[in-house]
Design a protein around this nucleic acid. Structure first.
Length: 765
DNA sequence: TAACACTTGTTTTTT
DNA sequence: ACAAGTGTTA
């Protein structure tokens, strides 16, 4: 495609941003303003002007974003060109570079990656060794402190030397933090492993200490683009700065209003201060939203205006005016699920839109379950993103841990995972002795395991034999890995290790599940190898596979991409996506904004941005739901609607109609407004005393809970049918209007409290 | 050492 | 509610 053709597909602001390539530029891109489009066309434009693809470095936030952009560029140019671009997340790109340059930073070439749980487990192990109380030195807290330090490029050595930090730790009653940090670093290094933050820090160390290497990459990457710049942290910012300091051909794209990763060290300051670093930079603003209706854009604007820290811009839509953002309350999380399911089912049926046009967004992964239950019971196909990706399942991690150990036997966390899996009589005691001996001698566990006598591992003859057997088996696999290709090697590992035998003997339901997951892993290895071959990158080794897998986060959804399903995911996961119809669930205080954010104004602003992201995912309609009670941590909690609802200008909202009449003191003479239609029945007021078993307790506020004999045409004592719960008898009726509900004793499922509005009860004749 | 029951914390989001 | 960690027993 030539330049004219693709320029015609851009508006004026977009064109300017695409065409300016002579120096640094900052593209401030409002939600839905065609940011990805600008990036892809810009890259196409650079290629068009003769820049070879391998000279362009494009850093994205997720692997998925990189994949999508590559395929878009492939349609603008060709497959081969797109493949040759350096495009990926910071982590995956610099993992590649660091492996290549491992010698310079003193790491083994085959270093592996510690994921979050590996890090935590290592921290635990160190705390035990130092005999520290996990209640004082909480592993999670230690982990995030280490992470913060690394993001700020503070090494364990400079941390220990800096009295400001150590004094602070002393005051915070964790004087030994610095010691933990350095031990952690030592252990990671001995294991030949880096955590996520270390990758970025080492990339900086590489460029700082090796000017020749830096210069090589400065010359290689003649143009650098960074997407989602508002979510980069200091370490990432500095990498980019170093790479571009000579030629200054850099373009960063982002939206400060969508910065939602500060918990990971991201800082909007990188974006706000971009022009301080590059005084000559040009700033482009993309303000026209092509995605959403005017109402949605206006609602989102009115919300985000409540934030103080932001770059001024006016996002507007010239699309349809659109309908108001609906707000739907329900009594419980359970009913909320039902409300959502009904909404999707009704819209799907009435407007004939695909289920794939719907997304349900929530703050935390834990919220998905109730919604899933409701969707399933209504027969609505859905897919949950993120919650527990394939590679986080236990047995999958175990298998991958074998691969990791084969590639790098010094990988302590991987080795610990598999040393007694399947059970081979090497228990915690022995592992503890190995760790102690290794730590004493400053070697890896693997080294200690291979020469127990030399490092004084105090174990009995029998154990010694077991250690030897295991060691010999692994050694052989390591040796074979040098000669065999990925698929071959994966199969051999699974066989020799005894995983296969262990899994295939177990014929329980979980056992069969594990077998399937094992097959999936092998399939993934095979697919990976095929892809590699097709890309012409030569035969893939197990090591190559691991490089790919360690940094995978978004699971592959292509498996049944054609199936029509609704999408369930966290708001974070939804960043960058769009759907015709969006439901934002669980819009309650202490939930959204999260209770973790309540005290800090900055944190509340971030939560507000998160809500902004959620709202702006919607193209046509957006519905917000909240529940008055929610089952959480084994208890039912009372919830109030989110304060953020007050931040949206009410003219863009369709608030729920409150019950017309609230109860009068004394409780008499109340009229039920049943199912929207007024119905005047004399009330016999009687407290609903719930039997000791059954229903959950509801502490206060009994206002809407007074019972009546008849409601919405149903009578107490009547026999009814429900398509999921089956036959049952109405024990009580209570509430009014939209809140009208029935307590029903079902034959099989027991007592349930159902909203009449949604329950679709059928009277039994 | 391994299997089991019991206790405990834990929940914000992800590379 | 649930998973992970701890302790007890065979």
């Amino acid at each position: 495609m030539d330049e004219q053709t693709y320029l015609s597909q851009l508006n004026e602001q977009q064109q300017e941003a695409v065409l300016y390539n002579d120096g640094p530029s900052l593209v401030v891109a409002g939600a839905g303003s065609g940011k990805t489009r600008v990036l892809t066309y810009k890259i196409a434009c650079l290629l068009d002007r003769g820049l070879p693809p391998w000279c362009i470095l494009a850093l994205t936030f997720t692997n998925k974003a990189a994949r999508e952009m590559k395929s878009r560029i492939a349609t603008l140019t060709d497959e081969r060109t797109a493949m040759s671009l350096w495009m990926g997340t910071f982590h995956s790109i610099f993992y590649r570079i660091l492996r290549y340059e491992s010698e310079a930073i003193g790491y083994a070439h085959d270093f592996t990656i510690y994921d979050t749980s590996d890090s935590k487990s290592l921290i635990r192990s160190i705390l035990r060794e130092m005999k520290l109380d996990e209640k004082v030195y909480r592993p999670g807290m230690i982990q995030s402190r280490i992470s913060n330090a690394k993001n700020a490029l503070i090494t364990s050595r400079s941390y220990a030397r800096n009295e400001t930090y150590t004094d602070y730790d002393a005051k915070a009653h964790i004087p030994l933090f610095s010691e933990i940090y350095s031990r952690y670093q030592t252990r990671c290094f001995q294991a030949g492993a880096m955590d996520f933050d270390e990758l970025l820090m080492q990339a900086n160390v590489l460029f700082r200490d090796h000017p020749d290497v830096l210069e090589k990459y400065q010359q290689k990457f003649r143009f650098v683009l960074v997407d989602e710049y508002q979510d980069t942290n200091f370490a990432q910012h500095l990498i980019v700065t170093r790479l571009c300091e000579a030629h200054r051909r850099i373009c960063v794209v982002g939206d400060d209003a969508q910065s939602i990763y500060s918990f990971r060290g991201a800082s909007i300051d990188n974006m706000l201060r971009f022009k301080d670093h590059y005084p000559e930079c040009r700033i482009f603003k993309l303000e026209r939203n092509y995605r959403s209706t005017q109402n949605i854009v206006n609602a989102a604007n009115s919300l985000i205006n409540k934030n103080r820290e932001q770059i001024h811009k006016t996002v507007y839509s010239r699309g349809e005016p659109g309908s108001r953002v609906g707000v739907r309350p329900s009594h419980s999380d359970y009913e909320e699920g039902y409300v959502i399911a009904s909404l999707i089912a009704d819209t799907h049926r009435e407007q004939g839109c695909a289920l794939a046009d719907f997304a349900v967004l929530y703050r935390t992964n834990a919220q998905s379950r109730v919604i899933e239950d409701a969707l399933r019971s209504r027969g609505i196909a859905y897919r949950v993103y993120g919650s527990q990706s394939f590679y986080q399942r236990k047995e999958v991690k175990d298998i991958v841990a074998y691969f990791r150990t084969v590639v790098n036997p010094h990988d302590e966390e991987a080795l610990k995972r598999i040393i007694n899996f399947p059970a081979r009589g090497i228990g915690d005691t022995t592992v503890g002795k190995l760790i102690a001996a290794a730590s004493m001698n400053g070697v890896s566990i693997w080294t200690a395991l291979r020469s127990p006598a030399e490092y004084g591992v105090p174990v009995s003859g029998g154990t010694l034999h077991k250690l030897h057997e295991f060691g010999a088996m692994m050694e052989e696999l390591v040796y074979e890995n040098g000669k065999r290709m990925a698929v071959d090697m994966a199969e051999l590992t699974v066989k020799r290790s005894g995983i296969a035998t262990a899994f295939f003997q177990d014929m329980t339901v979980e056992g069969i599940n594990r077998q399937e997951n094992l097959q999936e892993v092998l399939k993934a290895v095979a697919e990976f190898s095929t892809n590699r071959r097709e890309e012409g990158a030569g035969p893939a080794s197990l090591t190559d596979f691991l490089v790919e897998v360690s940094l995978i986060t978004d699971q592959d959804q292509d498996a049944d991409g054609q199936a029509d399903r609704a999408t369930l995911m966290t708001v974070h996961a939804a960043k960058g996506l769009e759907f015709d119809h969006v439901v934002i669930a669980g819009m309650e205080d202490n939930f959204f904004p999260s209770h973790m954010a309540q005290s800090e104004p900055r944190a509340v602003e971030e939560e507000r941005r998160l809500f902004y992201v959620a709202l702006t995912r919607a193209k046509k309609t957006c519905t917000i739901t909240y529940a008055k009670t929610r089952f959480r941590n084994g208890k039912t909690e009372m919830c109030t609607p989110s304060r953020f609802l007050d931040d949206i200008d009410p003219q863009y909202l369709e608030m729920p109609e409150e019950p017309a009449v609230t109860s009068v003191a004394g409780g008499n003479g109340r009229f039920g407004t049943a199912c929207g239609k007024p119905s005047y029945f004399p009330q016999s007021v009687r407290e609903t005393r719930e039997s000791p078993d059954g229903e959950r307790r509801r502490p206060a506020a009994r206002r809407a809970d007074e019972s009546v004999q008849t409601l919405c045409g149903f009578n107490v004592g009547e026999s009814v049918y429900h398509d999921r719960f089956g036959r049952g008898e109405i024990l009580a009726l209570e509430g009014s209007g939209a809140d009208a509900k029935a307590i029903i004793l079902f034959e099989h499922t027991g007592r349930k409290s159902l909203l009449l509005k949604y329950a679709r009860l059928i009277k039994n004749k």
